[in-house]
Design a protein around this nucleic acid. Structure first.
Lengths: 363, 363
DNA sequence: TCATATAATGAAATCGGTTTCGTTAAACGA
DNA sequence: TCGTTTAACGAAACCGATTTCATTATATGA
């Protein structure tokens, strides 16, 4: 019987009307007007005498009053909330970007509304609109693909502050923060070239996505500068997924002449590619060198440790958030720009000079 | 000069007062009252004639009107927003939990406010309060440690719906969703025992955190059931960090008799531990078997592939979110319960029978 | 000393929706 | 045919803050 009455008690607790102490209650109990109370809460200088302030604060404490920010937001026409739309929050790279964003956003006095688009471009826009109707002050988005700019027109019409991260939609003329993909990719490829590789294959990401295409271009550029038309680069499309990486790698390993090195455009595809190499029974870097875009915390403890391009994910998030906060606090708005941070190549053991022995694909 | 005028244009765009089409504008243009328009937007049955509805929708479309949810929330006293407080959004495990939460929350018509506590217990409470003042309808939190329940008192006073994930604060009497840590941990340890191991060490997480202690208890229980007091289990405290895992493992490898197997209480510490083993030049599983809590996508492609306990992180998030949505939609509130999902042991190559050779710690 | 600045305060309007009461007219039931 | 629903609307109150515009008292300056 005891448990029944406990349940009842809990039910009542939950159904009970929410504890709604409003500013009116404080006003009534103190005999001070809402105006003054509001000023005290918002710490307006010279708004209330020491006496009044103390009295009000005491009552606020007694009643357990805390201001309803929804009401405040309505009148202020600003919610001090920023929207964040990501393609895949599960990916540790994006996780770190989010962490960076969150840190800056919160320490600047804003909150974060998060949504996951699952790389669905239509959903992405939809989510932006939803956030706008929730009156976010600005939106940060990691665009999934290359929606043309006019798909974002609906968002622009609302004239919010918009900042892209990790990728951008061309022609949109908004701030974007990302790594210098072309440069990083070229540097990575040059590393392989400097080791003596010629037959380098590239497992690319989502086609037509700017960030992805930049990586491809960087790869091709390095190869072309060194070898011109004497080598025909092999580029496969892995769509940034583990499965995609696995399949691409498998295809590469079925070529008559297996490449001596692979460069893989992101972390998930690298996992897939490593799986395919393992399944094929090949050794890294003895049989094939492997270099991945995105560094992961386990790359250094992998056998062999993996050479990778380290994107400053945390910094990307922080920079983008700072940009947004800047736009929200300054009146003067600098022209939107594409801010490119530098990635850095971390050379480890998975890249080595090309094999001298022949490998024939099985099956 | 061209660029200057462009900048000016952009500046004006941003400074320009926000495009504020309100319901009043729609009312004026259609000659229909706000009341009816509100009803049409909220699709109240039998609220407006076909004619009126069409007319209103047309004007809404023309004006590009979209409702201000802040205003709506104020009157409704519900924001259809749920708060989410995590310890570390960078950790892929939590990333997946968040993803699960987000999916359910959004598909149920709610939005998500996300905050990262960096495992700071005081910040955790602070963030809950912040969210409450933003009038979230409920809060999901992955409690960092074992704050006593009365630290959460401030949150409870507000009578929101609160659901814990991954861990819980004893005595709080709220819903909690997590894995059966004791059972999973015991099963893992039994797996090692069944391979013949006696000298099994455990690298534990944050002490006094329930979820962590449950894992330790599970480990100890298995060991005790098998060997009683004939073995003295070695438990180190790694605090759930990579560095912690590394240090603990290093200490273990400096013991006079190195354990034949280690069981590590989470993914980050496993990375650290693997690093220490690699640095020591030991072979897995030849010299030592390794088993980690939390499965990662790269465990299967690691050399050797890693035996691990796979927590249903996505499911944890979804379950917790569903619980919250349930509480928000039903009047009748079932008693809070601790929902324990089953983790599963995935046996791979990092666990094998104990070595037969002796290893002496160097230095 | 008198005009003026400043501190300290409050009444009432406002933000942009939702909701409560009405009201009217048409449909329905007996 | 007459009372009763039900459909289709609207005026005005309301949600809980902020902000504008006054007002009063006190301090300051010339």
């Amino acid at each position: 019987m005891k448990s029944v009455s406990l349940n009842d008690f809990i039910n009542r607790l939950h159904i009970m009307k929410k504890n709604t102490v409003t500013m009116n209650d404080v006003a009534e109990k103190t005999g001070v007007s809402k105006t003054t109370i509001s000023r005290i809460i918002n710490q307006i200088p010279n708004a209330a005498s020491k006496d009044t302030t103390e009295k009000v604060l005491k009552v606020i404490d007694e009643l357990g009053y805390y201001p309803n920010q929804v009401a405040a937001s309505l009148k202020r026409t600003t919610t001090r909330t920023i929207g964040l739309v990501m393609g895949d929050i599960e990916n540790p790279f994006y996780g770190l970007v989010i962490k960076g964003v969150e840190e800056v956003v919160r320490s600047s006095g804003y909150s974060l509304i998060l949504a996951n688009s699952n790389y669905d471009m239509a959903a992405e826009i939809e989510l932006c609109m939803l956030m706008l109707s929730k009156q976010v002050d600005a939106i940060l988005v990691a665009p999934s693909g290359s929606s043309s700019c006019n798909q974002y027109a609906a968002v622009f019409e609302r004239q919010t502050h918009l900042v892209f991260m990790d990728n951008y939609i061309p022609g949109c003329n908004v701030d974007a923060v990302m790594v210098n993909n072309f440069k990083a990719s070229k540097e990575a490829c040059n590393h392989l070239i400097s080791l003596g590789h010629r037959e380098i294959s590239f497992i690319a990401g989502t086609p037509k996505k700017i960030s992805s295409d930049d990586r491809t271009r960087g790869f091709l550029s390095a190869l072309n500068e060194k070898y011109g038309s004497s080598v025909t680069p092999v580029v496969k499309n892995g769509d940034y997924t583990v499965a995609g990486g696995y399949n691409c790698m498998k295809q590469l390993l079925e070529m008559p002449e297996i490449p001596t090195a692979v460069f893989i455009a992101n972390n998930l595809m690298t996992v897939g590619a490593l799986g395919a190499i393992k399944d094929a029974g090949l050794r890294i870097p003895g049989d094939i060198s492997v270099l991945g875009f995105d560094d992961m915390n386990w790359y250094s403890i992998n056998q062999p440790s993996l050479t990778a391009i380290d994107q400053p994910a945390f910094e990307i998030g922080k920079t983008a958030a700072r940009r947004v906060v800047m736009r929200l606090s300054h009146q003067k708005q600098p022209a939107p720009e594409i801010i490119q941070l530098d990635a850095r190549l971390i050379v480890r053991d998975s890249t080595a000079p090309p094999r001298s022995h022949r490998i024939t694909p099985k099956s």
